[in-house]
Amino acid sequence: MQIINRQPETHEVIDIAKHGLPVTIITGFLGSGKTTLLNYILTNQEGLKTAVLVNEFGEIGIDNELIVATEDNIVELSNGCVCCTINEDLIQAVYKILERPEKIDYLIVETTGVADPLPVALTFLGTELRGMTHLDSIITMVDCSNFSLDLFNSQAAYSQIAYGDIIILNKTDLVNKSDVDAIEIRIRDIKEAARILRTQQSEVPLPLILSVGLFDSSKYFASKEAKKNHEHENKHHHHDHSNHLENDGFISISFESDKPFSVRKFQYFLDNQLPENIFRAKGILWFDESPKRHIFHLSGKRFTLEDDEWKKEPKNQIVLIGQNIDSQILYEQIETCISLPFNNKAK
């Protein structure tokens, strides 16, 4: 989890003392565009000083290199599934923000793509944060180009829709309008009252998603009591990831190397070895054939590779998230992408 603070260019006054620090939760399945939306907000929300909490699923904190920040004040907190660590780390992270000498106007929490947003919301409703913050809305991102009508057989993916106040149908430019219409019908079946917006590249007018007051806390107290009872029954069970991850079969594979990949080998891995049930991958890649730093994103069957300059010593970092995969085989396949030293290439 990282804290990123954006310095405003102008100043707008929000009565935090009266209402508490406004909070927006951004959720959505793997690769739906959450970080892109976050970057868009930070780039365009002039007049507000915004703090962002990011909690990603995976051992390598790649997002702190990918998130657009206007200053270097980034604090590394925990690095695990949001549903497991949220009740411990989120509260402390919010306290750090509230205790900063400079005034913070807005807080955005981005969950991991396999998280149920309800525990995050209940942390703001059912802890000491209730008197210091107010939850404005839960935004759910949906990838129209990689959407499963059965919601990937995932309880977390279902919960993201069910608890969304605003549901953004993203990447509409990559599919037919009839497909987007079918997705919206499916979502209305789950959450009829949600505000549904259609967009490309996570670009949506900010007045439609921030300071909208759409979250109704009165609907969630029954859920909160059920959640507390469940936690009481399971208080002696400790685990690395929350039960919904185990139930849904999600696995995160993290790979890191100080040796470059071969472009040809990595392309072969993507074309011939990558399992279909890898829903999301992202990384900072170093290729033997290129002096550039390459930012890699994969969602479903599509991937992008963008290059820029290295800011640190070159190395490979990649995280893949999938369902019911053989992590050992996948790790070995990625390892074979490493370029051989020159004196071994002919062997």
Rank of each mutant, 00 (worst) to 15 (best):
W310N: 10
I196A: 10
I4G: 02
L320T: 07
N344S: 09
A115M: 06
L122R: 08
V319P: 06
T70L: 12
H236W: 09
N55S: 02
A157N: 04
I209G: 00
S257I: 14
S252E: 11
F57Q: 00
I209D: 04
F152Q: 06
E306H: 11
R186D: 12
Y158M: 09
H230E: 14
L208Q: 12
N146T: 09
H236E: 09
Q155G: 12
S217P: 00
I26F: 04
N324W: 09
E309D: 11
N234H: 11
A222I: 08
I295C: 06
V109G: 00
F287D: 11
L107W: 05
Q160H: 10
D116A: 07
L214F: 08
N64D: 12
I25H: 01
K96R: 14
E225A: 11
E102F: 11
I190M: 01
G131P: 01
L208F: 11
I25Y: 01
Q92P: 00
E246C: 11
N344Y: 08
G249C: 10
A193V: 08
I278F: 04
I167A: 04
C337V: 09
G80S: 13
G20I: 13
K103A: 15
L206N: 07
N343T: 14
F287N: 13
L305E: 07
F152P: 00
N344W: 08
L30P: 00
V120L: 02
V114N: 04
L53W: 10
R280I: 03
I295N: 04
H297L: 13
S159C: 15
I14Y: 09
F266A: 06
F266L: 05
K311N: 15
A222V: 13
L340P: 04
I26A: 03
D216W: 08
E65K: 12
E71M: 05
